[in-house]
Nucleic acid binder design. Structure first.
Lengths: 166, 166
DNA sequence: ATCGTTGCAAAGGTTTTGCAGTCCA
DNA sequence: TGGACTGCAAAACCTTTGCAACGAT
């Protein structure tokens, strides 16, 4: 039942970062905001706002959708959360960002699984194109779409894949 | 008043491709569909469905939004049009795809301008990661976000930029 | 006590859908 | 002619907003 020390420390660290951010920006430290932050860092996958809202509702905390969206914006601003736009559907995907090294995504059009990968060349491309076209590049989004060749990838397995496929 | 031969030929070619696609897929060759195709290939920029709908409405053709969306889907399927998701807003951007070499996009977060660029390394990344993670990659989306350093980039110049910025 | 934040529901913008009428094959 | 396509409007979807009540500072 003991919580691993590392988990605890990370949670403390994150709460601290968020608290400092809120103070600096003269925003209130409400319990709802910290509950949302905690729930996000408990999860390990990519998620959307509605899913997060449902998970919170099922548990202890009764927060409204408006608060979820508001808090996600705040967490994005202080870089504790990253917001993604995968596929062509309207729904945004989010993921925790703290201490996760920068990476890009590859998505299976059949089963909807999201894989993460790194390639240093993308940084090179970023600086080269920025210099070339006289841009100060702040960030990028690279998504590879394809079909995973593993046998455990049944066609149209889940809703997420359908949405990504449109 | 003479239409340049190349333009004419390209238009004929495109109509032919679309017609063949429609036949193969047992879809009807309606005037609306060809009017939409033609309007798209007259334009040189990125556009969204609503803009296209308005342009058609202002001109000869009275098509409905539903038909515009339906036709854009068809044109995407036969690869005459590419659909993009820039920024975090809900609106999709489209662009004509025939005979335009594959490229990626860089977007100014101030003025919303969209620049296109090519870098062969992205193809290399695509095949390397595909091999590595056992994926059959069909396409990718790379968008660089930044601030253009030119003097003619006033802050928050237009609506598009605001939307990209959220 | 103040004033930012919450919850709820209603509005917002983009895209899809249902249905009756139209028209291509 | 018949089934697919169109137009219209309504619905669906995700997200934001208005406002009264609440609560952190």
């Amino acid at each position: 039942m003991a919580i691993p020390a590392t988990d605890w420390n990370i949670n403390e660290e994150i709460r601290e970062i968020f608290a400092t951010y809120l103070e600096k920006n003269k925003q209130r430290k409400t319990p709802e905001r910290f509950a949302i932050l905690e729930e996000i860092y408990k999860r390990d996958d990519h998620f959307d706002a509605e899913t997060l809202y449902q998970h919170l509702k099922e548990k202890e905390y009764n927060v409204s959708r408006a608060t979820v969206y508001n808090t996600l914006d705040l967490l994005e601003s202080c870089e504790l959360v990253t917001k993604h736009q995968f596929g062509n559907n309207a729904t945004h995907q989010y993921e925790k960002a703290y201490r996760y090294k920068q990476h890009d995504h590859m998505i299976c059009l059949n089963c909807g699984q999201v894989l993460e990968f790194c390639d240093p060349r993308i940084q090179q491309i970023q600086s080269k194109i920025g210099d070339l076209l006289n841009f100060e590049i702040s960030h990028h989004s690279l998504v590879l779409y394809g079909i995973c060749q593993k046998e455990h990838c049944p066609y149209m397995q889940n809703e997420q894949a359908k949405e990504i496929n449109n």
